[in-house]
Write a protein that binds this DNA or RNA. Structure first.
Lengths: 115, 115
DNA sequence: TCCTATACCTAGAAATCCAAGGTATAGGAG
DNA sequence: CTCCTATACCTTGGATTTCTAGGTATAGGA
């Protein structure tokens, strides 16, 4: 079941910040984590991931460091900053409000959010 | 309480089709209905409403008719077509799947969808 | 040696939406 | 009678976001 790709618009940054709030990750890892956590329902392509990370970094919401490990090529690992945590909090509140508002227009069975 | 306007991206057509599935409406009415049903949380501006209606009509998902009534200026009233109902069904399924997937990434308390 | 998975990146285009402007009608306030 | 406001339609240009399609590079296995 393919999800209309337009729906993710406006939520990518929030999703990335949320994942980085749990642990530092590199771009490729973020992309595959998103895909596997959603069972393939949501894919954020590399063409989106990297520019978005650069933009978040330029704005000070995340910061990066090159990391080397055995038998792996170099990776740029991103960590969320305190400013990023603040933004995440705002964006999560916004997402909640949006869901609530959408529920008035397009009711969805509440069991979707359980399990 | 202002919602990040980017979040509505990709959902406008679905919302419009959903409202038109209940009853025929004109553009201005759709815009104000969306605002009042969501207590002002979601606004779809006229700059979005009219082009979107034209696009939906061009694709055969809705159809229009000019209507006159006492003491009101002419309105263009839109009705959903059977093709539009089919599209709405698909888009609602897509929205459900998207919500479900987002829930794996960004958990939201389930009571948001109640009440 | 070649292929695949990993890992980074960018340029250009597509899609969606909004802000700001314009036109027009009806009713009420001054 | 004039002006203002609410209603009602519309378009242009731009901003934003994301994707497609390409490119580069490394490590390991076939």
């Amino acid at each position: 079941m393919l999800i209309d790709k337009e729906l993710i618009k406006g939520s990518s940054k929030t999703v990335i910040l949320q994942l980085l709030s749990k642990k530092g990750m590199h771009g490729y890892e973020l992309s595959s984590q998103i895909k596997s956590l959603t069972q393939g329902a949501i894919e954020i392509s590399e063409g989106t991931i990297y520019p978005t990370l650069h933009s978040l970094e330029a704005d000070g919401y995340i910061e990066s460091q090159w990391a080397e490990s055995e038998g792996k090529r170099k990776r740029k690992v991103y960590k969320i900053t305190s400013s990023g945590r603040k933004l995440l909090k705002e964006r999560k509140a916004s997402w909640n409000d949006f869901l609530k508002a959408m529920q008035s227009l397009l009711p969805v069975k509440s069991n979707i959010l359980e399990a």
